[in-house]
Design a protein around this nucleic acid. Structure first.
Lengths: 204, 204
DNA sequence: TCCATAATGTGAGGAAAGCTCACAAACTAT
DNA sequence: ATAGTTTGTGAGCTTTCCTCACATTATGGA
């Protein structure tokens, strides 16, 4: 179904200054986005703000979209770190504390820069570049976490299925709450309701 | 926060052929998207496939994004119709049947053309053009539906808050399931789990 | 029916954005 | 020092978005 021809390979940064160039480009996108808005994020402006030439940008990114994809990758890695940390910090905590901590951590991580996150969601098509989805990346860890707490779960349930649904609930609801802040509902209340919903599902 | 200047107003189609032109433009987008992929959807190609001149496109749409916004609006109206129909058809049905019917109808509506839906999600920024969000548009109707079934709900809950969370659960989870089809989970099972999760939350 | 006015349709081409390429500079290794 | 590799440059080519001056078609009153 992919109608885009295979992109020609680009150089991988090897020396320090090359990595600094790539970093400067990614940071420039964020700065332009926050200071001038989405429409100002053009390739030439990115190069200008990053303090490099437009040619350098295309040394490391095959096209404009790839720049957003790299930022997206960064975001995914951050979320993965947040989840891993939370799981470790709560290895022996009961189910409700773990779910609460997870929802809290994920929402906080997304609140840090909602504008950037919106841009990434809109510019990076899902499943692009062979990157695994949230569900695929976290399935194993969540399966382990739930297995260890099977006493607190309803018996006789297919854990794989439960993990899949919980994963989607966490991702979808956290995104939803951050992206469209409730008109009158404080964020803390929204978090609590998400936790309540997840626990209700797992115990039902 | 909107950095985009106010668009100059465009002509409203008044005669029949004008409405046909607008329709042809919107249909052209869908055809190009499905036959040639996202990248082929350029304004000039839209005009070509629609069989009108590029000038005509800009008679009715201030810019390219507005074309996607119009398609998005169409989609929203379809979903609203689907929800209204389902609510009416289930006025006297118990809560579980209603939730099941809603999830079924919404997922089916989104499965009809997932490629188009992905394009719209990626091209139309949320809250654009003064269009209300899913939550805002459906709040009243869902509030009514839940009020009428308060016997089946846990007592002493803030209905406004419940509606908000259920709304987000429906929107997020239906989108999530359609957009990233489970690797091994059949769609029917995923639907059932969404229903289970919503009911578990409402009854908890 | 004819004409004035409004609505609709046209497409060459201007403006701006994405991106390339031939070349220069900086670094590494021998 | 020298050869080879990596990194950096920016004028300008290509493509896309979009405008505008003008042509065509419809409408409504005399």
């Amino acid at each position: 179904m992919s109608r885009r021809p295979v992109e020609p390979p680009r150089r991988q940064p090897q020396q320090l200054r090359a990595r600094q160039t790539v970093d400067a480009i990614l940071e420039a996108v964020i700065r332009i986005l926050k200071r001038e808005g989405t429409d100002a994020v053009t390739t030439n402006r990115i190069a200008e703000i990053a303090g490099v030439s437009i040619g350098s940008v295309y040394q490391y990114f095959p096209d404009k979209r790839a720049i957003f994809a790299a930022l997206h990758q960064r975001h995914l890695e951050e979320i993965d770190r947040v989840i891993e940390t939370t799981l470790i910090q709560n290895v022996s905590a009961p189910l409700d504390r773990l779910v609460c901590a997870l929802v809290d951590a994920i929402i906080d991580a997304h609140c840090a820069d909602p504008e950037l996150h919106d841009l990434l969601l809109s510019q990076v098509p899902p499943h692009s570049g062979g990157s695994k989805s949230f569900a695929e990346r976290t399935h194993g860890a969540f399966l382990l976490a739930l297995s260890a707490r099977s006493r607190e779960l309803k018996k006789g349930r297919d854990l794989d299925k439960s993990v899949f649904v919980v994963t989607h609930m966490i991702e979808s609801l956290c995104h939803g709450v951050v992206r469209q802040r409730p008109p009158r509902l404080p964020l803390a209340d929204a978090k609590a309701e998400i936790v309540r919903a997840i626990l209700a599902y797992l115990r039902s």
